[in-house]
Design a protein around this nucleic acid. Sequence first.
DNA 1: ACACTTTGTGCACCTGGTTGCACAAAGTGT
DNA 2: ACACTTTGTGCAACCAGGTGCACAAAGTGT
Lengths: 197, 197
Amino acid sequence: MSLPHAILTALLERPSSGLELARRFDRSIGYFWSATHQQIYRELGRLERSGCIRALASQRPARGRKKEYEVLPAGRAELTGWVSGREDPKPVRDALLLRMRAAAVVGTDGLPDELRRHLALHERQLADYADIEARDFSGRPGTAAETTPERTEAPTEADRLRHLVLRAGMDLERLWVDWLTEALREISAAPAGPDGA
Amino acid sequence: MSLPHAILTALLERPSSGLELARRFDRSIGYFWSATHQQIYRELGRLERSGCIRALASQRPARGRKKEYEVLPAGRAELTGWVSGREDPKPVRDALLLRMRAAAVVGTDGLPDELRRHLALHERQLADYADIEARDFSGRPGTAAETTPERTEAPTEADRLRHLVLRAGMDLERLWVDWLTEALREISAAPAGPDGA
DNA sequence: ACACTTTGTGCACCTGGTTGCACAAAGTGT
DNA sequence: ACACTTTGTGCAACCAGGTGCACAAAGTGT
């Protein structure tokens, strides 16, 4: 049950219409919670019905008419509660790891190509994040490489938290890049064949 | 569509009944793909109907009667194809990162406790993996700390792949431990308050 | 006036995972 | 003989996310 909270967060940062939200999900928010525009509209409807958000009365509602939403006190309260609440981390569920495990049984034929493909994808994603970091967080240290110590302005608490989240994304991509590299070396060391030795 | 493949893999490693599979999912398989026993039974039914697996004729089927399955050639072929096929990595979707981002907007009240709780959970999981590694892979190097170079036997290819998968799990847990530690330091540096500065 | 594209909203359906519960056989204690 | 627990199988309902498609208004070119 995270999508409504993702939307509330986005709406608190800036009141938006459904399509604007969808675009923001494709960018900054999407790197830790993705959603399609259909999901977003559906959820906006629910949030409005439950009194968490309200449509700004810019134009009277009609099918193809833009509709902007803002968060109501109830919505903010809901979000505040959710942030501090308890919710266990969900167990890992990764298809690639599963495929690797399956390859231990049926052989690694064709796997290396797929691993290389994933490697390229993760390298690309990492590079994109690095760009975002350079743009939005002016290359401050964090986990990243060091740049010239040209701090323009002391970052706000909110900035530091957002940077932290981005860094988690970068760390994850780096993890996969490293792991895939290691996996490719491991596999090429002893080519393949159904089941080991 | 990974659960059927997870089951095929498990069944190839050793023919089992539904409950045995469920138990194995709670242990080794569960660290990258979890499933409840209900899911497993449902999927076993589908796999049998589609000719990928077959029930061993130990007893004639009845409601409370144990039923063991083995993989048929069609099932092995299906799995082999899946291993080498294309399947993009799914975008990250992590509720904790989302909550952190929300905290940047509504404040970090109550968050540190939750972060500490997650930290403990991940440390625990990492320790469990380390135990498994020591038991099943006799503490060979990998990403882990070095032990005495007492290689008992050269590992098979299958062993090395399974170890690789386990190491990915360990790397992930380590990532969260490190990130949570950093996050806690970052937050305690400037206590809280709704929105930054 | 007309077709075409872009921006914007939304429904209907499907799928995979989760929860709750029920049913059946076999073993265990009294 | 009886109740109780353990082992084992399974259905039904639900829920969140994903896909496909439709509809509406406004702008753009000819």
